[in-house]
Amino acid sequence: MASEPQGGLTGYIQHHLNHDVVSLGDSAFMKIHVDSLLVSFVLGAVFCLWFWLKARKATSGVPSKGQAFVEIIVEFVDTQVKDTFHGDRRTITPLALSIFMWVTFLNTMDLLPLDAPGWGVKTLAGDEAAHHTFFRWVPTADINTTVGLALSVFFIIIAHGMKAKGALGFGKELMTAPFHADNLVVKIILVPFNFLLNLVEYLSKPVSLAMRLFGNMYGGELVFMLIAGLFASWLSFLPGVLFNTAWAIFHILIILLQAFIFMMLTIVYIATAREHH
Score class of each variant (00 low, 15 high):
54 K>F: 00
231 F>W: 01
24 L>Q: 08
10 T>E: 10
144 N>T: 08
89 R>V: 04
116 A>Q: 12
44 G>H: 00
218 Y>Q: 06
129 A>E: 09
158 I>A: 06
184 L>Q: 10
71 E>C: 03
248 A>C: 11
212 R>E: 11
221 E>W: 10
191 V>P: 00
17 L>S: 15
93 T>E: 02
184 L>V: 08
16 H>M: 07
199 L>K: 14
29 F>H: 13
3 S>P: 04
264 M>W: 01
187 K>C: 07
176 T>H: 14
201 E>S: 15
172 K>C: 06
95 L>S: 02
198 N>I: 00
36 S>A: 08
275 E>P: 06
192 P>V: 03
149 L>H: 03
145 T>G: 11
130 A>F: 06
179 F>R: 10
44 G>E: 00
206 P>K: 07
186 V>H: 06
110 D>M: 13
273 A>I: 06
226 L>Q: 11
262 F>E: 02
86 H>A: 15
117 P>M: 05
2 A>Y: 06
139 P>S: 02
235 L>Q: 15
130 A>D: 05
22 V>P: 02
264 M>N: 08
113 P>H: 04
160 H>C: 12
182 D>A: 10
261 I>C: 07
43 L>R: 03
173 E>G: 08
66 G>Y: 02
216 N>Y: 05
206 P>Y: 00
83 D>Y: 14
121 V>Y: 01
127 D>F: 07
61 G>N: 04
98 S>W: 02
9 L>W: 10
111 L>P: 03
103 V>E: 13
151 L>H: 00
122 K>Q: 15
275 E>S: 15
148 G>Q: 02
127 D>K: 15
100 F>P: 02
118 G>A: 12
179 F>K: 13
149 L>T: 03
224 F>W: 08
123 T>W: 15
50 W>T: 13
44 G>Q: 01
73 I>F: 12
162 M>Q: 15
262 F>D: 03
34 V>S: 13
157 I>W: 02
258 Q>E: 13
187 K>T: 04
214 F>R: 11
152 S>W: 00
143 I>P: 05
38 L>F: 11
33 H>A: 12
186 V>A: 09
18 N>S: 13
136 R>T: 04
191 V>M: 15
173 E>Q: 14
25 G>M: 03
100 F>E: 01
55 A>E: 14
170 F>G: 10
114 L>V: 12
7 G>L: 08
241 V>R: 12
42 V>A: 01
266 T>M: 01
49 L>Y: 01
39 V>N: 03
257 L>C: 07
241 V>I: 12
251 H>E: 13
126 G>I: 11
114 L>D: 13
69 F>Y: 06
193 F>P: 07
33 H>C: 04
20 D>M: 09
125 A>H: 15
159 A>I: 10
28 A>M: 13
51 F>W: 01
45 A>C: 02
162 M>D: 12
147 V>A: 15
223 V>T: 11
154 F>H: 14
141 A>H: 15
181 A>R: 04
95 L>Y: 02
155 F>P: 06
167 A>C: 01
244 N>L: 12
167 A>I: 05
9 L>Y: 09
218 Y>V: 04
3 S>I: 04
112 L>C: 08
64 S>W: 03
258 Q>D: 12
148 G>D: 00
219 G>M: 11
101 M>R: 08
81 V>P: 05
185 V>F: 09
228 A>Y: 01
